[in-house]
Design a protein around this nucleic acid. Sequence first.
RNA 1: GGCGUGUUGGUCAAUCGGUUAAGACGCCUCCCUUUCACGGAGGAAUGACGGGUUCGACUCCCGUACAUGCUACCA
Length: 506
Amino acid sequence: MEKRVRVRFAPSPTGGLHLGGVRTVLYNYLYARANGGDFVLRIEDTDQTRFVKGAEEYILDCLKWCGLMPDESPVVGGPYAPYRQSERKEMYREYAMQLVGQGHAYYAFDTTEELEEMRRVLKTDEHSSVQYDHNTRKRMRNSLTLSADEVNDLLNNGTPYVIRIKVPENETIICNDMIRGNVMFDSNLVDDKVLLKADGMPTYHLAVVVDDYLMKITHAFRGEEWLPSAPVHLLLWQYLGWIADMPQWAHLPLILKPDGNGKLSKRDGDRLGFPVFAMNWYDPAKDETTMGFREMGFMPQAFVNMLAMLGWNSGEEKEIYSLEELVEKFSIERVHKGGAKFDFEKAKWFNNQYIQLTDNETLADLVMPYIAEHGHNPSRELLVKVIALVKDRCTLLPDFWAQGSFFFTTPETIDETLIRDAKWNENKELFFAAWMDKLNELADWTDVAIEQSAIELLPAFTLKKGDIMLPLRIMLVGGKFGPGVYHIAELIGKAETMARIKRVIG
RNA sequence: GGCGUGUUGGUCAAUCGGUUAAGACGCCUCCCUUUCACGGAGGAAUGACGGGUUCGACUCCCGUACAUGCUACCA
C-alpha cells in the first residue's frame, strides 16, 4: 500500500520570512494537496543563540496571509506533537547515544580553541579550509583516540563534549534528488558533523533526520543550500536503520538578487527598494521594521502566484493561476535546477493582473484601509465606482489613493503652470465663466450631458473640444492623470465640480 | 582552495535531436486616447565558449569559462 504523503516546512524562528521560504512552503503545500497528503509545520529552534522571540508567531501569520496553512503545527498540534524541536530535546539524545553505541558516532571533547588551533595549523595554500573528518579526527581528543577509561573519566567529570558522526572512508554516497537525479559524493570529503551539541541540543543534521522519521515525512523539499549536507543525512538514515523510510528529497533552486550575484537577501531589498519578506518584520533586537509584500500593497494570491512561477513553469503559456489550479498543475519534476533572479517589476505585474481580475466589491474591502489612512471615509457606493474607474492604472493597493484621491477630496494644490502650458488664454477663461452658468442649470448630471453642454458652448468662443479638456482636468484633479474628465465631473458631483472650476478662474 | 550544483534575449522562461528558438516582464517605435493608463500592431537571441557523437544538437557526451551553494557545537 502506498504511504500517505506527508511533507513539512521546517523554518528556524530567527527572523522575517523570506521569499524563498514562502516558495518552499508553497511547493510543499501544493505537493501535499495534490496528493491528498498532510502538510506539517515544524519549528527548528535548536539554536538558542539565534532564537528570536515572536518569529514563530510571525511565520504562522505569514502562512495564514498566504493561505497556506499547515495541517499540523505547534499551535494546532497533531498526532506527532510536539512540533517544536526544543520540546523534543530528549528524543535526539537517545538516538545520538544509539549511534555511539553502534560505533557510528563518537564523543569529541575538543574545545573551540583546540578546533581553531587544528584548523590554523593544518591549513595550507592548497586547502584553505580544514574539516574535522576521517583524517583529522585521529589527532583530536575524542573517544576514537582516547582510551575507554579516559573517556569515562572525562564524562564523569562533566567535561563538555559533542557527539559527531563517524563518516566512513572510501565510499561513494549517492543521493537521489527528485529534480536533479543522482548526486554523488566521496565520503572522504564529507566531514564528521556534530550531531549533538555541548548544550545537549541536536544540530540540524540529527534533528531533521529524527523528526522526519518520527513524523513519517515522505517528501522533503528544501533549499539548494542543503544539498552539500545531504550525504550526512543519508548516512544517518542508514545508521539509524530507517533507510526504507527515508523521504524523497528535492533541493529547490535559490532565488537570486536581481542585479549582481548571489542569493537574495534582506539587504538587497533595502538597497533596491523592494520587499524580501512576506510581511512587515519587526526586529526587536535592532528595533527596526523591514517592509513586507503585504504592507507594500500586494494581494496574497498574486504574491503566491508570482512565487510559484519563480523556478517552476507548467509548460503552458498561462501565467496566472489560482491556488487550486496550481495544486492541479504543479509537479516537482518541472521545478528548475538553476536559480532565478528576482524581478520586482514582474512581481508588480502579477499584482496588477490580480487587481484587474478581482471584482470591485472585493477590492473595496482591500482598498478601504488605504483611503482611511489618509483620513477619508467614503461611502462604499462611491468607493466601488471610483475603483471601477481607476483600477486599470493601479498596480499596488496604495495606488488607489494616488490615482483616486481627488474623488474624495479637493486637490490640495493645482499646478497652474500646467494650465498655462495647455495654452491658457482669455478666451478659455471666458468660456469657463459662461459654462459655469450652464452647468448650474444642468438638470441631468451625467458625463454625457456635461460633455454635451460644453460642446454646445464651445463654438461661441471659437474653441474646440480638445482646447478645454486639459485645463478642465487640471482644475478637477490637479494634474495630468486620471480617467475621463466628464466621468470625474459626474462622480464628484455638480457642486464640487463647479467649486473646483471656480477656484481656478476666480 | 576543496566539494556540490547550475548556465536559452536585460529578467522569468517553452523546447524532452529536425521549429522562422514560444510566451511573459521590462525596454523602444507606431496606433488608439487632445491627460495618465488600458488596449492593439511592430522591434530587438547567430541558445556561455570550445570540442565531439549524429544525416541533423539549444537539446546527448567531454573540456573550459563563468556563476552560485556549502565548507560552524547556524540553520
